[in-house]
Design a protein around this nucleic acid. Structure first.
Lengths: 142, 142
DNA sequence: TGGGCCACCATGGGCGTCAATGGGAACTGC
DNA sequence: GCAGTTCCCATTGACGCCCATGGTGGCCCA
């Protein structure tokens, strides 16, 4: 499979590391991604990750806008100022930094959620709640 | 036959596996489906399964919206974050994971229900009740 | 038409492999 | 030197793959 799908919750160890689900690692390996670009989601309290090509996409989007517009300015602030590069260790784990903890509320467990072309890190309870809320709204609309 | 029809109830074994009815497996084999896309039904407490082309359909639905809108983000949360790929073992069984149990209430038996282009997994009693209720409502209208 | 044989399906369980997790030790920058 | 990291290696529990068995329904043949 070539996209990020489903969700899984893993534990953070004493050193602050957490295993990225093997399914997601397989997708990354297939795309030959070495370094992950991470940014804060624009809507939810979650940190997103993907290969560096999404950063290119974001930059092209900014480039297509008026460089002096407030919107382009804001987006650059989010994309560049709110983004970092991360690497996995030999076992496919990543360090849960304060960048991640502060924005998501994650403490000792992480829920990984696939999002198609990227995946996200959530505080488990927040993920549960957001998902059931989204489902409720969707049924209410139909 | 090329669509999912009728229903059957099978037992979950000690390892948490359950046989997919051979009738359904035949439909899958005819469509050359190797991997199943599973998602939580938007109305009933049931998990639906079908070939990956259903996911494509869902993604096209999202793709037609503004990719940065909250609504597209929410929908992706459901179909990507709330969807799973599952594989059958050599005997045509699938693992009944917590993803399925929590949402359906399934414990030791599963009712498989054909739904045309996909099929669903139900807790047997819940399926009985839903079906008889649907039947009652229908006769009340006619 | 009845009986028996056979094939297939649902189910059970063994075993090897791999992912998730834990922890030691070297390494590096402050 | 110390704290935060990175690179290994160990453990264990879950899952995938394989083979076995029993029961049932269908089919063939007498």
């Amino acid at each position: 499979m070539n996209r990020f799908l489903s969700n899984a919750t893993n534990r953070i160890d004493a050193k602050g590391r957490v295993s990225v689900p093997s399914m997601f690692r397989a997708v990354l390996a297939r795309a030959a991604v070495e370094e992950l670009y991470a940014w804060q989601d624009f809507v939810f309290p979650a940190v997103s990750m993907a290969g560096p090509e999404v950063l290119d996409r974001f930059e092209r989007m900014i480039g297509s806008q008026d460089p002096f517009s407030a919107q382009a300015n804001e987006m650059s602030l989010l994309i560049h100022g709110g983004g970092v590069f991360m690497k996995l260790d030999g076992e496919g784990r990543l360090l849960v930094t304060d960048f991640i903890r502060d924005f998501t509320g994650i403490t000792d467990r992480v829920t990984f959620a696939g999002r198609g072309d990227h995946f996200q890190l959530w505080e488990p309870a927040a993920f549960e709640e957001m998902q059931s809320r989204a489902r409720k709204e969707r049924t209410a609309r139909s």
